[in-house]
């Protein structure tokens, strides 16, 4: 498939933005400057970027406890994310959500759902609303491999299937549910084998190849938008950072980790862009420098922003 150079470079920039954002956040966190806990996305960037680049602005995603990458890929501003991570009033949830609940429905992202599997029924309901209103919109449900062992997953994917809803269920299989390897908790080799049980297509792709993810997502999104129903899309990837704060990943075998680092999506895609002659090294360096500058500005703004008044905690329970 032939792609526009701007589009290809855009994917690179998006992935680098997520990686650099996460690295900066990790540093701020380890410095003790940032409150709370964090679940980071390093290594999985090709999934969020590949899928979201196949969506329209009016499409809606649900996310997980590991949502920063999805948020940036769906178009939330760096400032509103960084503000939320710092618990400031400038955050996308005014400091009431935090790292695990970032989102902005105006941008097509439901506040992230940090109960594993909890977002699957919600994304299904969003799809139902599109179908009832005959709107040509699509809901995308991001989830981890662990979510496929939750009852909510089975209940909701089945409902999406029987009603032919415009939903794409995306499993980011990073091979670990926290520290437990998925091979220990599922007998099937590919989690998409479960799609057969619901009578919908299941597609497993290399989740570290952004164009492969993009193309698979496009097929699934088109299918959903056309009224043909949901797809279960599994993107094989790897988390090259801890599950959450200060996790040294001692459960990831050395060899496996080494290989995963060699296959991480940004290095791979950058090398491909260079080999194809799509971009010069200077262009890639410039993209990195630009996002670094934007991130620094967001950190500065977030640190300077006012903290919410403690008693503002009492607001927003009800409309």
């Amino acid at each position: 498939m032939a792609y526009d150079t701007q589009f290809l470079l855009g994917l690179y920039r998006q992935m680098v933005l997520i990686r650099q954002f996460e690295e900066r956040v990790k540093f701020l966190f380890l410095e003790g400057v940032m409150p709370g806990t964090i679940h980071q996305y390093q290594g999985q960037e090709a999934v969020a970027v590949g899928v979201c680049s196949a969506l329209e602005a009016q499409d809606v995603i649900t996310s997980t406890h590991r949502p920063h990458g999805h948020a940036l890929a769906k178009g939330l501003s760096i400032e509103s994310l960084m503000g939320e991570l710092f618990g400031k009033v400038t955050g996308c949830c005014h400091g009431k959500g935090g790292s695990m609940h970032v989102g902005d429905l105006e941008k097509g992202m439901v506040p992230a759902i940090a109960i594993v599997g909890g977002g699957v029924p919600i994304a299904t309901g969003i799809g139902l609303s599109f179908k009832l209103r005959q709107e040509p919109r699509v809901a995308v449900c991001f989830m981890g491999d662990g979510a496929t062992n939750e009852g909510a997953f089975h209940e909701a994917v089945n409902m999406g299937a029987i009603w032919s809803l415009p939903v794409v269920y995306v499993i980011e299989n990073n091979r670990y549910s926290a520290s437990t390897p998925i091979c220990q908790t599922a007998r099937v080799e590919r989690l998409t084998e479960r799609a057969h049980a619901y009578g919908i297509p299941g597609v497993t792709v290399d989740g570290n190849d952004v164009l492969t993810v993009h193309e698979a997502a496009q097929v699934a999104v088109e299918r959903a938008r056309s009224g043909a129903g949901p797809t279960l899309l599994e993107a094989m990837t790897y988390r090259i950072t801890g599950h959450s704060r200060r996790d040294p990943c001692l459960y990831q075998p050395e060899e496996e980790r080494k290989q995963a680092l060699a296959e991480e999506p940004i290095g791979r895609y950058g090398a491909w862009l260079l080999a194809e002659g799509t971009a010069e090294q200077a262009a890639l360096d410039q993209a990195r420098a630009e996002v670094d500058a934007e991130i620094e500005e967001a950190v500065r703004a977030a640190q300077a922003a006012p903290a919410p008044a403690p008693e503002a905690a009492l607001e927003d329970v009800f409309a």
Binding site: V60, T62, L105, V110, G118, V120, P121, I122, A123, T124, G125, I126, G127, L128, S129, F130, L132, R133, A139, G151, A152, E155, A156, N158, M159, I162
Partner: peptide, 26 residues
């Protein structure tokens, strides 16, 4: 008929589906 939706025996599923539809304005 279009607005009476019979579900499978899936309570977690149906309450989540209702939530998803509600936040989109239904």
């Amino acid at each position: 008929r279009e607005r009476i939706i019979d579900t499978p025996i899936s309570e977690a599923g149906l309450f989540g589906v209702a939530l998803g539809a509600a936040i989109m304005g239904l």
